Simulated scan of single mutants.
Amino acid sequence: MNLLYDWIRNENVQAWAELTNHLAVVDCTDEFYEAEDLLEELHEPGMEPERDTVAVWDGNRLVGFAQLRVGHQLREGLSRVSITGGVHLEYRRQGVGTKLMDILESRARQKSAQLHPGAPAAVDMWGNAPGHSAGAMAEARGYLPARYFQDMTVKAEEFRKSSMELGVNDSLKVLPYSPEWAESIRLLDNEAFADHWGSTPKTADEWEAMTSARTFRAECSRILVEKQPGSLRPRVLSYALSSEWVPNELYVARVGTARDSRGKGYAGRLLSDVIAAALADGFTEVGLSVDVQSPTGAVGVYERLGFSVTRTGTMYRKDILRSADASCRSFEPR
């Protein structure tokens, strides 16, 4: 094969969407994207497309891609790198995936060292269900299974509304998401996920990119606030933020509760409101993804609302060594 390796450009996003949606079907991930969403992703904070992405072309056909992200901040002194990508079904087992990983693992060492000099680093990659080809390749390259995640969904006939009630004189109030709360929620998110595996704190720019994205659904997102004695501004205790990647299917992307407020049913109440609003607005189902070993007992919260598991995936991790190379390219972009 005479394949061309390049980086992903603005004009490539339609071909990128077609390949990504092909992979969603053949790999049973249901991760479908529109070209507009991938264009936003291509220019998210910290992304350098000419260095952090790779496109594989067979003539005018995009047959493989990969992209890399490095957390802007350390978590417990670790620089976290994630690599995502895929190869068209017809082009697998021909070395394409191996070359993509060679390129981006080298870039991972370089960029991590630039952003976080002296800090240890690890690369994470998704392997889908056990036995999937991506997982087999990960293990062949020295990655080890590090965490298991479940995709869960609930439909109208399965939904069980939360029984938690907020009294009329209660200091607690459920509100729809609005930008005025963005910074308070971002800080709470960083606190809430500080004890979650694989998470890194989000910067203000990253939070703005997420909540201003085309797919973000403020109208189907909720926050719980508490009036503070002597303070004009309530404190945010919990939040559930939603997106719509697939038409008529709501995806709850972020759920969190202040650590001193866990175990009180707040997340379940907010999610219950989100699900009810989504179903009333015509969504056919609500989905989310959860760490099976979540320290908050999130799986139980979701099951009580009627969520059930639709698929299980594996996150693989490998520690990486530093590289002093000035360039990580093993190809010359066109």
Results as ranks from 00 to 15, higher is better:
4 L>M: 12
4 L>Y: 02
4 L>R: 14
6 D>Y: 06
12 N>Y: 14
15 A>I: 07
16 W>M: 11
16 W>N: 01
24 A>T: 07
25 V>N: 11
30 D>N: 14
33 Y>V: 02
34 E>R: 14
36 E>I: 15
40 E>L: 11
42 L>D: 08
42 L>S: 04
43 H>R: 07
50 E>Y: 12
51 R>A: 12
52 D>R: 06
52 D>Y: 04
56 V>P: 05
57 W>S: 00
59 G>I: 02
60 N>L: 00
64 G>W: 03
66 A>P: 02
67 Q>S: 13
69 R>Y: 06
69 R>L: 01
74 L>V: 06
87 V>L: 08
87 V>E: 09
88 H>Q: 05
95 G>N: 05
96 V>E: 04
97 G>F: 04
101 M>A: 03
105 E>V: 06
105 E>L: 10
106 S>P: 05
108 A>C: 05
111 K>R: 14
113 A>I: 01
113 A>C: 12
115 L>E: 03
116 H>F: 04
118 G>T: 09
121 A>C: 13
121 A>I: 04
123 V>S: 04
124 D>R: 01
125 M>E: 07
127 G>A: 06
131 G>L: 02
131 G>R: 09
131 G>S: 07
133 S>Y: 07
135 G>C: 07
136 A>K: 08
137 M>F: 04
138 A>E: 01
138 A>Y: 02
142 G>H: 03
144 L>P: 05
147 R>K: 15
151 D>R: 13
154 V>T: 13
163 S>I: 06
166 L>N: 13
167 G>H: 10
169 N>W: 11
170 D>G: 12
171 S>I: 10
173 K>E: 15
174 V>I: 15
175 L>C: 14
176 P>W: 10
177 Y>D: 00
178 S>V: 10
178 S>G: 14
182 A>D: 13
184 S>D: 10
185 I>G: 05
187 L>D: 07
192 A>V: 07
195 D>G: 02
196 H>F: 07
197 W>H: 00
197 W>K: 00
198 G>A: 03
200 T>Q: 02
201 P>F: 05
208 E>W: 05
208 E>Q: 14
209 A>Y: 13
214 R>D: 12
217 R>Q: 15
217 R>L: 08
219 E>V: 12
220 C>V: 10
222 R>A: 01
224 L>Y: 05
226 E>N: 09
229 P>Q: 12
230 G>I: 10
230 G>D: 07
234 P>R: 07
235 R>I: 01
237 L>C: 14
237 L>W: 00
238 S>V: 09
240 A>R: 04
240 A>S: 15
253 A>L: 12
253 A>K: 07
256 G>V: 03
267 A>M: 02
268 G>I: 01
270 L>Q: 07
271 L>S: 04
276 A>H: 03
282 G>E: 09
283 F>Y: 15
283 F>W: 10
288 L>Q: 04
289 S>W: 03
295 P>G: 03
296 T>G: 00
302 Y>N: 01
303 E>D: 05
303 E>L: 01
303 E>R: 12
308 S>V: 08
308 S>C: 10
308 S>W: 11
313 G>W: 01
315 M>H: 08
315 M>W: 09
317 R>M: 11
318 K>M: 12
319 D>R: 14
320 I>K: 02
321 L>V: 13
322 R>N: 13
323 S>V: 11
324 A>R: 13
332 E>W: 08
333 P>W: 03
